[in-house]
């Protein structure tokens, strides 16, 4: 329990997530922030599978799972239906990075363009974990996954991660934020804000996956914290199109510390680690510039 957060649980214990699952920590605290007056729409993926084994459910909120790629569209229907009924509930849409960055991107883009009032939360664990750790558009460069294995010729995934929060912000979404399961009070207040602000809001939560990343189940929060402290996972919010860094990392740790903590990066060469460091430095500079110059996303 983190002091200051509501004690009531809406994501009950007894679900079947792995010990140390970052996503389960995220679910627990996101639902605490959302509270009782909330309808949950969840995409197919680890969290859906572990939380709804019929006839059990971990959800103490009204909950619907439809398919993998259509949560934003289901939420659109719910939102308009509630409007005609004159009811106002939080609509909390939950998807993994595969559901969000890849297969459900069109549906999400369309729903944001239409301006539905919901909060979409992407649980970013950087791969399709539910189907056995396959590469997604959110998988970091050089990470080993089962479909981008670190081979003798090709060293894991070859592409950088899709900059989804910026893409969503460019849709004129009123509120976009990144968060991490290592910073629960920050995550909590960002979820609250995303639900309070009218219109389609987006929060991307960085959350380690024990088998997917090859980490010790006791280390998931620690690894998530390293991602923040190395600037791998910059924490910011974009409100009204203007970016603000919510946790400045003045003296970053080298990315190597983060990479070395995970089996999915164990094949990396010095050059590759340097390349990642240079990329992370570049991205941080860019984000800083966006903040300092008050650049508008729209």
């Amino acid at each position: 329990m983190i002091r200051g957060l509501p004690e009531e649980e809406f994501f009950a214990s007894g679900h079947r997530a792995c010990a140390g699952c970052g996503a389960a920590i995220a679910m627990r605290h996101i639902t605490k922030a959302a509270g009782r007056n909330t309808i949950v729409v969840q995409a197919t993926g680890c969290m859906e599978v572990v939380s709804t084994p019929y006839p059990e459910t971990a959800w103490r909120l009204p909950y619907i799972h439809g398919a993998f790629e259509n949560t934003a569209a289901i939420a659109s229907g719910i939102e308009r239906a509630l409007k005609t009924l004159g009811k106002k509930y939080n609509i909390l849409v939950l998807g993994g990075d595969g559901a969000t960055f890849d297969i459900g991107f069109g549906a999400l883009s369309g729903a944001i363009e239409r301006g539905h009032n919901f909060l979409y939360v992407c649980n970013d664990n950087g791969a399709y974990m539910n189907t056995g750790i396959q590469r997604s558009g959110a998988t970091p460069k050089y990470a080993h996954t089962t479909t981008s294995p670190a081979g003798r010729v090709i060293p894991g995934k070859l592409e950088w991660k899709k900059p989804l929060p910026f893409i969503i912000a460019s849709h004129r979404a009123p509120y976009v934020a990144t968060a991490s399961i290592s910073e629960i009070p920050d995550l909590y207040s960002k979820i609250k804000k995303g639900l309070e602000i009218e219109g389609p809001c987006y929060v991307q939560v960085f959350s380690p996956c024990v088998p997917g990343w090859g980490i010790d189940s006791a280390k998931s929060v620690e690894v998530a914290r390293l991602a923040v402290e190395t600037r791998i996972c910059p924490l910011y919010e974009i409100e009204g199109g203007i970016l603000k860094i919510t946790k400045d990392i003045k003296e970053p740790k080298p990315v190597e510390e983060y990479l070395k903590a995970q089996a999915r990066f164990k094949h990396l060469s010095e050059t590759q680690i340097k390349e990642i460091q240079a990329f992370v430095d570049g991205e941080w500079t860019r984000i800083k510039e966006l903040e300092e110059k008050k650049c508008r996303f729209y």
Binding site: I64, N70, A73, I74, G77
Partner: peptide
Amino acid sequence: SALLGAQAAG
């Protein structure tokens, strides 16, 4: 999908 969501909302 929106059909499903709206009907599910009642």
